[in-house]
Design a protein around this nucleic acid. Structure first.
Lengths: 141, 141
DNA sequence: CTACGACCTCGAGTCGACTCGAAGTCAAGC
DNA sequence: GCTTGACTTCGAGTCGACTCGAGGTCGTAG
């Protein structure tokens, strides 16, 4: 009843088109154990991805782009693979990463302040026509 | 009157202590041309950093932590080295990076939304005692 | 029946920014 | 005068996450 005809299967090429990843990446991810289970294959040994796997790849992309290391993603996948009962642990993995991302945002905004400060200095001097004083005024370069 | 006794000079060890960088990093940065000029040396060939150079290292740290590649920092340094007259170009370098950082922040917040969503899903199921439905409900793992 | 394109595995290469270590020089303290 | 420790240069190694390419297999279209 669950594994019926409704479940679409995608070739790796389709997955690539759907996610914007190269075909190498989902293969690499499978090898790294980032999926909840080995990816299904057709008779010829070609991978067949489910909707859920495609969606998971999209999530992985977000996790990666926010700096989650592959080992952490793998750990989460293994918890899911292990079945119900470890939801608190999965939650902990997610929350730790969430916190790291918030910290990253804070750090970036900190850096942004420094950068924008310098931009303002230049804008000020350029507007006032005193740009050459940037040299002698001190550390304003 | 400018290069008088008031200008402090720091050894690389002091710079390391002041900035939190290892001694390798300022050396590496000099080699990569990130300073506005070659670093001054004492009679024995040891580097002597000025206040301004220490401050610049701090700025570099922010630029790096916000993802500015060394070649871009080098380009900025070369503009400063080239002297007055190119302030618009320096400003452009800074503004481009500023924009990239803003984009990074936006991307991180986008990822954060996805991550936080999953956190909420787990919190909801755990609170409701329906955590085991995570399995069968669909792509909520 | 053959060509084609999409897929497979495996291992090696790439990238940027450090990071480390070896081997040597130098100055100050004892 | 010798040790100690901070400095010097140089070249090699590290890290993670891809990324690429060679060489091979398959199934479908013509």
């Amino acid at each position: 009843m669950t594994a019926g005809a409704g479940a679409r299967a995608f070739t790796i090429g389709e997955v690539s088109a759907l996610t914007g990843l190269t075909t190498h990446t989902p293969r690499f991810y499978e090898q790294e154990g980032l999926f909840f289970a080995p990816v299904r294959r057709d008779a010829a040994g070609r991978r067949l991805f489910t909707d859920e796997e495609v969606e998971w790849l999209r999530v992985c992309t977000k996790l990666r782009s926010s700096g989650m290391p592959l080992p952490d993603i793998r750990r989460y996948a293994q918890l899911v693979l292990a079945g119900p009962g470890n939801e608190e642990e999965r939650l902990a993995v997610l929350r730790e990463h969430e916190e790291r991302v918030r910290q990253q945002v804070a750090d970036l905004q900190d850096a942004l302040a420094v950068i924008h400060d310098k931009v303002e200095v230049y804008l000020g001097h350029l507007a006032a026509g005193t740009a050459d004083r940037l040299w002698t005024d001190g550390p304003e370069c």
